[in-house]
Simulated assay, not measured.
Amino acid sequence: MLDRRQALLSAMGAGLAAAASAQTPPPGHGTGRSRHPDPTETIDLWPDMPPQTARPLPVERAVERSTADGVGDREVRGIARPRLVVFRPARPNGCAALVSPGGGYRYIVIDKEGYEMARWLSARGWTVFVLFYRLPGEGWTDRANVPLSDAQRAMRLIRARADAYGQRRDRIAAIGFSAGGHLCADLATRFAIPVYQPVDAADRLSARPDIAAPIYAVQSMALPVAHAGSRTALLGPDATPAIERAHTPAVNLTAATPPLFLAHAEDDGAVPVENSLALRAAARAAGVPVETQLFEEGGHGFGLRAAAGKPAALWPELFARWAAGRGFAA
Rank of each mutant, 00 (worst) to 15 (best):
V63L: 13
T31M: 14
G13K: 01
F295Y: 15
A242H: 07
E291T: 08
A62I: 11
V76H: 05
Y107N: 10
E244K: 06
G325E: 07
D203L: 12
H264K: 09
M221A: 06
K310M: 15
P272Y: 01
P25N: 10
S230I: 00
T40D: 11
L277A: 05
A282R: 01
H182F: 07
A282E: 02
V273S: 08
A246K: 08
P259Y: 02
A286H: 12
A20I: 04
P259F: 01
L157K: 00
I158H: 02
A212G: 05
V71L: 13
F319K: 01
L45N: 01
D111Q: 13
L223K: 05
H227G: 02
F87T: 00
R91H: 14
V290H: 00
E291C: 13
P214V: 05
L262Y: 06
I158F: 04
R245T: 14
A306F: 12
A68T: 15
L183P: 02
G114P: 01
E274V: 13
L253I: 09
G325Y: 03
G32F: 00
P27D: 13
R35N: 06
V195H: 01
S230N: 02
E244Y: 10
H264W: 08
H264C: 11
A265M: 07
T248H: 02
V63D: 06
A255G: 14
P272E: 03
L318D: 03
N93E: 11
A329I: 08
T40L: 14
V290D: 01
D111S: 10
L279R: 01
T292L: 15
A329S: 09
W322N: 05
D170V: 05
A226S: 12
P27K: 06
P37D: 12
S178Y: 04
V99R: 02
P47G: 07
I110T: 15
Y133M: 11
A62S: 15
I215F: 10
S206V: 11
A285H: 13
A7T: 11
A263R: 03
R91V: 14
A228P: 05
P289R: 03
A162N: 03
F129S: 00
V199T: 11
L9V: 15
